[in-house]
């Protein structure tokens, strides 16, 4: 009984996160300006990290943790680089 509740909660949480990623993707496509798209990208990678962590719980494997860590790291670096690019037109000065 309790296990059923847990399984369903995991499923619902995953659906909620996929909807959240959908919202972020809509914002990426709609813009209207470059900075709006980058905010969408930021939300997208945070949601992806959470989704991977929940996949880890669902399959009771800690392997997903590494993937989540890498997505969080790469998301940070890419958003920071794009923000820098928006400001100066160059990534490295």
């Amino acid at each position: 009984m309790i296990t059923t509740i847990l399984i369903w909660s995991i499923l619902i949480a995953q659906i909620l996160l996929v909807l959240a990623m959908g919202c972020a993707v809509v914002r990426i496509f709609r813009g209207p300006r470059a900075q709006d798209r980058v905010v969408g990208l930021d939300a997208l990678y945070v949601n992806a990290t959470m989704l991977l962590l929940i996949f880890g719980i669902r399959t009771t494997s800690t392997l997903y943790f590494e993937a989540a860590l890498i997505i969080a790291l790469l998301g940070f670096v890419s958003t920071a680089a794009i923000a820098k690019f928006l400001m100066r037109g160059e990534v490295i000065e």
Binding site: I10, I12, A13, L17, A24
Partner: peptide
């Protein structure tokens, strides 16, 4: 899990 996912959805909905 439900709380965290719901908050993430509300945040992205705010976008």
């Amino acid at each position: 899990l439900l709380l965290g996912a719901a908050l993430a959805l509300i945040g992205s909905f705010g976008l």
